[in-house]
């Protein structure tokens, strides 16, 4: 339970850091609410003009938005900032500060994934879950326990895929320091707030097979809507497993190439 204790410490330190900027806090709260409002409003405006879009109704797309926001919040809570500190702009790989991280008596992948937290993003998480509840209410039927369980499982699989992709992209930085691979991913991830079927064929292929945002958000949303096939459930778990193993291999292979920054 050494690792859990470490995570607790990391969170505590992050809270102290955040508390130093108070006025920024209130504006962040306002911004989170406004962003949520903008996201929901975007759907309301769209469905004010059309009844369905590619077979998706308002509650369906709302559920998808909820999944997207929840995943995004979890990512921004710790995965994003932690990996960013490693491989982002002026990250440790680039500046050579990774030397000091490497000598610590903890697994590097663990440290790279859980080190930095943004406690403010808990609010985003709450808002994302709120949208999910709103969607379920709009759908107007009661979820069974099995539905909920399936939803949580595929959502966890989605989170694992998200983590794996970010980890793999961070690992690629060892080959090409300075290139911000995660930014490239961010651009594609934004597309996950709408059903993949909305995009033209060539883009749909990319979003299904190269960067599987469909598996991350569309499948959990389908689980909530109650039209998830067992095959999708199995597939999403399998994809998650493959991505996680692959990303770990990429990251660890990359780490071995690390030769610090000075000459």
């Amino acid at each position: 339970m050494y690792y859990l204790k470490l995570i607790r410490r990391f969170i505590a330190i992050s809270i102290h850091e955040t508390a130093a900027y108070r006025s920024n806090f209130w504006i962040s709260v306002l911004n989170a609410l406004l962003e949520l409002g903008a996201g929901v409003l975007a759907l309301v405006i769209l469905f004010g003009q059309v009844e369905t879009i590619n077979g998706w109704t308002l509650p369906g797309v709302l559920a998808l938005l909820g999944v997207y926001l929840t995943l995004g919040a979890l990512r921004a809570l710790f995965i994003g900032p932690s990996l960013e500190a490693l491989a982002g702009m002026d990250g440790e790989v680039w500046s050579g500060k990774l030397d000091f991280t490497l000598v610590r008596p903890v697994d590097v992948q663990f440290l790279a994934s859980f080190r930095t937290w943004r406690p403010l993003k808990l609010l985003d998480l709450a808002l994302g879950l709120g949208v999910l509840v709103m969607a379920v209410v709009q759908l107007g039927y009661t979820l069974t326990f099995a539905d909920m369980l399936t939803f949580v499982i595929v959502l966890a699989a989605g989170l694992l895929i998200l983590y794996a992709i970010l980890l793999a992209f961070s690992g690629l930085v060892f080959w090409s320091p300075g290139f911000l691979f995660t930014w490239l991913f961010d651009a594609f991830f934004q597309m996950a707030r709408y059903p993949v079927g909305l995009y033209p064929g060539w883009l749909r292929l990319v979003l299904t097979w190269v960067i599987p945002v469909g598996v991350m958000t569309t499948i959990p949303a389908q689980a909530l809507l109650g039209d998830l096939s067992p095959l999708s459930l199995l597939g999403s778990l399998l994809v998650a497993l493959i991505f996680f193993v692959g990303a770990t291999v990429i990251f660890r292979t990359g780490l071995r190439r690390y030769a610090s920054a000075s000459s």
């Binding site: 769209l46 879009i53 300075g178 930014w183 707030r193 709408y194 033209p200």
Partner: peptide, 25 residues
């Protein structure tokens, strides 16, 4: 360049998403 191209790519995406959404609608 490559850094700025990446930034520009990121900024293109939100309007591009709504391009697809509205043209599909």
């Amino acid at each position: 360049r490559s850094f700025f191209f990446l930034l520009a790519f990121g900024w293109m995406i939100p309007p591009l998403i709504y391009l697809f959404v509205w043209s599909t609608a």
